[in-house]
Design a protein around this nucleic acid. Structure first.
Lengths: 169, 169
DNA sequence: CCAACCATGTAAGCTGTTACATGATTGA
DNA sequence: TCAATCATGTAACAGCTTACATGGTTGG
């Protein structure tokens, strides 16, 4: 499953939607980074449907076409993804957006894991800069790595800040 | 041309290398984010060679196989890429690493453009948060966007900091 | 001599991009 | 009625990932 697939599952879980409505979300929000254009979304929806993670249900009073709903298996897969260990910080942010609002424990656990992943990646870059491997590198290479470090620190700061929001209210 | 292709051109320009040596660079530096494993690098090298942006030259006293060298056209393509307007900040960092150290003007121009791209993307996210499109969004969605904002601000800060390094020495 | 590393590839499969195609509905 | 937008797709192509295959060289 690709990030796009999980994004679709997550959006449908929040609220059943038609393919077109899902596309609109990607077009009008920063989620757009995970997709673009019908050429990826419709095939992805088809494949989720074939895998029985989504179903189209027709009615709901509206005259429109079918809306996608999450199946039980789809819900399980989404949950498993949300709870899996963090390896990729970019994908992790997508996960954060889909965590259940009422599951405070999961949110706090996520934030801790996210912060510690960011810190350990920072430590990796620092070790790289301190080590032999970076010796032959031109100055701008090292400065580019510094950019990566600043990004990781910003991520860790975000996690700290967000954790406060969630624990002190 | 993909980022990987440009990364290969840039590395070869810094110093002619064999395919294996190039792979090692990706394996042992943070540049690794742009590739992995032979399955992408060797085919990419072949295609750059077919496009006449790289050539293999055998000798150099060493008994090893051929090393890749940049052709005149390859140099032009690399230059054009380095000088093109910034649209993607991630790719821009790759470019920064390959800017010529002696071309101070280009470096300063890059940093200005990078900073202004980061700021304009920040402004875009802020506008999104202030606008109607974000109204229906759950709280965690907005907090995830805040993460994006912090990343962009960290990028802009990096550009300011780096610019100082380059102008005051 | 054998393990490790040098060194280069190929093939299958999946995703995503781009670009095009189609038809229905609706507001001016 | 005509343009815009709703709504859904398909086809060609390129790129990457994974996994496998193959041989040479070298240090212990």
């Amino acid at each position: 499953m690709t990030p796009l697939g999980y994004a679709l599952l997550g959006l449908v879980q929040m609220q059943p939607r038609s393919g077109y409505a899902l596309r609109k979300v990607f077009e009008t929000t920063p989620l757009g980074g995970y997709s673009s254009s019908p050429g990826s979304i419709y095939p992805a929806l088809k494949s989720l449907e074939k895998a029985a993670l989504l179903v189209t249900r027709d009615p709901a009073g509206k005259r429109g076409k079918g809306e996608y709903h999450l199946t039980a298996e789809g819900g399980r897969r989404l949950q498993a993804w949300l709870a899996s260990p963090i390896d990729n910080l970019g994908e992790a942010m997508l996960r954060f957006a889909f965590l259940r609002d009422d599951d405070r424990d999961a949110i706090l656990a996520f934030l801790d894991a996210f912060q510690s992943a960011a810190q350990s990646q920072s430590a990796g870059l620092e070790a790289f800069l301190a080590g032999d491997a970076s010796k032959g590198m031109p100055a701008k290479g090292r400065i580019a790595v510094e950019h990566g470090l600043r990004q990781l620190r910003a991520s860790a700061d975000w996690a700290r800040w967000t954790r406060e929001q969630y624990s002190t209210d």
